[in-house]
């Protein structure tokens, strides 16, 4: 197998599948994939939490709280995630404390570039999730809420037992789309040198131009698989959450 790709690289100089036989390059690819997966999972989780909390805050009595959520959504939805990443890392990163290493001269910021990527991308996708969940919450009829109220449910019980479970089901298809976008947007973290898949791929093909085509193809394939797994999982989940006789 390795010999096959080595020979292929010699015969066809544009088709150097270097990571099939060079262990160092292979390690880069694998760690890139691993970083992309971790980045995606962390951002998916945090953005969903931001979405639920934000949608709940949008129903707050205080106009100030609602205003803050609205400003947040407008800011993150209407600016490019690429710019957000740069801003978070280079502007806000200045103000977070750094830890001086034991040797006395290495300075490590407490939030790494990976940390900032997770923060920026979670807030970016979270802004859309707030809107998605809010639409779901609005789809729950007032009369259903009133029925809970007249049975003595508290506001919180009504929210957690009735409104959220119903709103969540309504929101799932839109959430699905947004999370797919989020996974794809993690590639932009290369702007702040997060060693995810695309970043690693680029270092490979700048070192070995002959490996450019194969590496690009690999990046395509990995994303198709990653997003495929996500979509498959979300569809399974949608199906598991389906209520017999409801909403079809």
């Amino acid at each position: 197998m390795e010999d096959y790709f080595r020979e292929l690289a010699e015969q066809a100089p544009r088709w150097n599948f270097i990571w099939m036989y060079d262990e160092r390059q292979q390690g880069k690819i694998l760690s890139g994939i691993w970083m992309t997966i971790n980045l995606s999972i962390a951002c998916v989780i945090f953005s969903v939490i931001i979405g639920v909390v934000g949608a709940w805050m949008q129903g707050a009595k205080s106009a100030i709280v609602r205003g803050i959520v609205q400003a947040y959504i407008q800011f993150f939805r209407n600016t490019p995630p690429f710019v957000q990443l740069l801003f978070f890392y280079f502007a806000l990163g200045q103000f977070t404390p750094a830890v001086v290493g034991e040797d006395g001269w290495t300075v490590t910021p407490i939030i790494s570039n990976v940390g900032w990527a997770i923060i920026a991308l979670s807030f970016f996708a979270g802004a859309f999730n707030v809107e998605i969940f809010r639409a779901g919450i609005e789809a729950v009829p007032d009369s259903t809420r009133e029925a809970a109220e007249s049975l003595g449910f508290s506001r919180l019980q009504t929210y957690t037992e009735v409104v959220l479970p119903l709103a969540f089901r309504v929101s799932l298809p839109a959430l699905n789309n947004n999370l797919v976008n989020l996974v794809k947007t993690t590639t932009q973290a290369l702007a702040i040198a997060v060693p995810e898949l695309l970043y690693q791929a680029r270092t490979i093909w700048s070192d070995f131009p002959s490996a450019q085509y194969p590496t690009m193809i690999l990046v395509w394939v990995v994303y198709i698989l990653l997003v495929g797994v996500l979509v498959f999982g979300m569809h399974r989940w949608e199906r598991a959450m389906r209520i017999p006789g409801y909403g079809q």
């Binding site: 009829p141 009369s143 259903t144 009133e146 029925a147 009735v162 119903l166 209520i243 409801y246």
Partner: peptide, 9 residues
């Protein structure tokens, strides 16, 4: 209620 308002889930 007129519209039952059961919890559909």
């Amino acid at each position: 209620f007129q519209q039952y308002n059961l919890f559909p889930h």
